[in-house]
């Protein structure tokens, strides 16, 4: 009993110290908004591309689109200028930001925006928004992204977490504190050997970022991340649609007279057949009705038999020959639905 009360006293002392020290140390004011804090600058990468290339069609998607659709071939087959705005590991939050903060404010508006997605990605606003993905989002977010904050972060936090982020410095500044610890551990020993921060970061890049991953481990990582899209709560379309970026994406394209087409890309069936396949089917039926009600063209290649398993190099990504085939299939589908000049 005595040791427990001693513990409580010491813990209270540490928390009090943190209360006093952290706001000054990291220049944070409390109470603060829960969720990540984005900086004001917005990268204009895609605005520049739009104004320079003046595309008729913009493709938005992640690595599966990058390795699944050849923009030059698509341009040739559709007779339209196509630009591909892919970002590895991106998802609906990122596509929403690109649309809102780059595409619609560029001088040149494309006639059509095509979003290439898999299964439940369009209604999973919390998918791929933390870690390195948060840095990607920060590049294209302003410091007043109310919708992004609410849909990608706050809606997924419980009441206690939000209160802790707003009022408890130790919890709220934990990312900063962790970075301090990580920096200390990461750079100390290499520094003794004369390897400064740049040298250490280069070494980490050489060993991890630019190296090949073991195929089984890569597959296992992909599966682990993708499983989120197939949880029962994600497969309930009606429960998620209003909390997702889809209504905003539709509204933004409508207000700017841009045709929106969404394209469902097939994952490799051989490796991703799921016991809950009927739930995926129901989800797609509901998505399809919703898009039709909102005048959005939906091209569903999620079960296209032409995309055989041997066209894939893993559970998600197509091989070059698969990319050519899918681009041809997509061009065929687009030719009937693209807005006329």
């Amino acid at each position: 009993m005595r040791s427990f009360f001693r513990y409580l006293i010491l813990l209270s002392a540490l928390v009090t110290i943190s209360w006093a020290a952290i706001p000054g140390w990291f220049n944070i004011r409390f109470p603060r908004q829960a969720g990540p804090h984005f900086n004001r600058e917005v990268r204009r990468k895609y605005i520049t591309t739009l104004n320079k290339e003046q595309p008729d069609i913009v493709l938005l998607g992640d690595s599966t689109m990058m390795e699944g659709v050849d923009p030059e071939l698509l341009s040739e087959l559709t007779g339209r200028q196509v630009s591909s705005f892919h970002s590895l590991g991106s998802a609906s939050a990122f596509w929403y930001l690109i649309l809102k903060n780059n595409i619609v404010i560029a001088d040149h508006h494309p006639q059509t925006v095509i979003i290439v997605f898999r299964d439940t990605m369009l209604t999973a606003p919390g998918f791929r928004v933390y870690g390195g993905f948060l840095d990607n989002l920060d590049e294209f977010a302003t410091d007043h992204e109310t919708v992004l904050l609410e849909k990608a972060y706050l809606n997924h936090m419980n009441w206690a977490e939000i209160q802790a982020e707003e009022h408890i410095p130790l919890y709220s500044a934990r990312e900063n504190l962790r970075e301090k610890v990580d920096t200390w551990i990461r750079y100390l020993v290499p520094a003794w050997l004369g390897c400064d921060r740049q040298c250490t970061d280069d070494a980490m890049f050489n060993v991890f970022t630019s190296a090949e991953l073991e195929p089984g481990q890569l597959q296992s990582r992909i599966t682990t991340v993708e499983e989120y899209l197939y949880t029962p709560s994600q497969l309930d379309f009606h429960q998620n649609v209003d909390q997702s970026f889809l209504p905003e994406i539709i509204q933004l394209t409508r207000e700017n007279n841009i045709q929106l087409i969404v394209v469902r890309l097939k994952p490799n069936t051989i490796r991703t057949i799921r016991l809950d396949a009927p739930a995926v089917g129901q989800y797609i039926t509901d998505l399809s009705s919703y898009l039709a009600e909102n005048g959005v063209v939906f091209l569903d290649y999620g079960r296209d038999p032409r995309l055989r398993s041997d066209y894939f190099r893993d559970s998600l990504h197509l091989k070059p020959e698969g990319k050519t085939l899918f681009t041809q299939i997509l061009a065929e589908g687009l030719n009937g639905v693209l807005k006329k000049d």
Partner: peptide, 20 residues
């Protein structure tokens, strides 16, 4: 069961919050 052990647990709690 001494003060040092209690201090250890208090630090551990702070670190749990930081690494949560």
């Amino acid at each position: 069961d001494g003060w040092l052990t209690s201090a250890y647990y208090a630090f551990a709690t702070v670190l749990i919050i930081v690494f949560l």
